[in-house]
């Protein structure tokens, strides 16, 4: 499965500063609010719950101080493991944005993609959504409600990209990929997440992704992930799987 980029397209990605993240969970909650991810049923656990974005706690033995790692779909590039195993073509890498899209109507719920994902960033939806009280009135009409029996994951809030594209088209300016902000980025009170086109040399996201100290999870697999992390703490880098080799930000995708 190749993710050939279209002419003039973008390669959206994010850079997460782990030294700024304080583990407040605002990103996870904002993600659920934005994407109509329902509250957990009573039987749900940390192993079968539906959390498109989950904040993991990293602890170094013997250290009181912890680090927090927001983990969502890493939006792999050329070698997208989930796309390569899907028997239904329910996973597609959008060549215009680089976003790995999940098509729920094609998904048959085999969960091969979950097994293939090295980041454990895909979730099977075991239950019908249940919005207690009158909470259903707060659902976001820009996103469909979640249905049972399919695998789901972070989409980089692609509906916001579509809205930005619409606004750009309405303004008559289609020369550059539109800028937009996913819900988690908008919600982070610590300003730990920078989002943008990784191929825009003037963009902050591209600059940070290429800066020394940035790394990607499981870099050695060569998935071309478009989520980068930064930290000055060596033990955090080691635990996060970035190893000592920092990425130059251009090797994949």
């Amino acid at each position: 499965m190749k993710a050939g980029k279209t002419e003039g397209g973008a390669r959206y990605g994010m850079v997460i500063d782990l030294d700024r993240c304080n583990g407040c969970g605002a990103c996870a909650v904002a993600c659920a609010v934005e994407n109509n991810v329902p509250p957990a049923p009573e039987r749900a656990t940390d192993r079968n719950g539906l959390t498109w974005l989950r904040v993991q706690r990293l602890e170094a033995p013997g250290e009181a101080r912890a680090a927090f790692l927001p983990l969502m779909c890493q939006q792999c590039g050329e070698k997208t493991p989930c796309a390569s195993v899907c028997p239904q073509n329910a996973v597609e890498v959008d060549p215009a944005s680089g976003i790995v899209a999940q098509v729920p109507v094609r998904c048959l719920g085999c969960r091969y993609c979950m097994a293939a994902c090295p980041y454990h960033a895909r979730y099977f939806n075991w239950w019908d959504p249940d919005w207690p009280g009158r909470m259903a009135e707060t659902l976001n009409p820009e996103v469909s409600t979640r249905t049972r029996g399919v695998v789901e994951k972070c989409t980089f809030c692609s509906h916001r990209l579509q809205a930005a594209q619409d606004a750009q088209a309405a303004g008559g300016d289609g020369t550059k990929p539109p800028a937009y902000t996913p819900a988690c980025v908008e919600a982070c009170p610590a300003g730990a997440i920078t989002f943008g086109d990784l191929d825009d040399p003037e963009g902050e996201a591209a600059r940070l992704a290429g800066a020394p100290g940035s790394f990607r999870l499981l870099e050695r697999l060569g998935t071309g992930a478009k989520v980068y992390f930064r930290t000055e703490r060596e033990w955090v880098r080691r635990l996060a799987g970035g190893g000592a080799a920092a990425s130059d930000g251009r090797s994949h995708g």
Binding site: A26, A30, V33, T138, C188
Partner: peptide, 30 residues
Amino acid sequence: RPVAVVGEAAHPLGGGACAIGLTLHHLAGH
């Protein structure tokens, strides 16, 4: 209908909102 809540990042007294505040709009229908 309120469908989402975001903290004002640039507020001069300190910006942003916590995870609990981001669900404020759910409470009227709790």
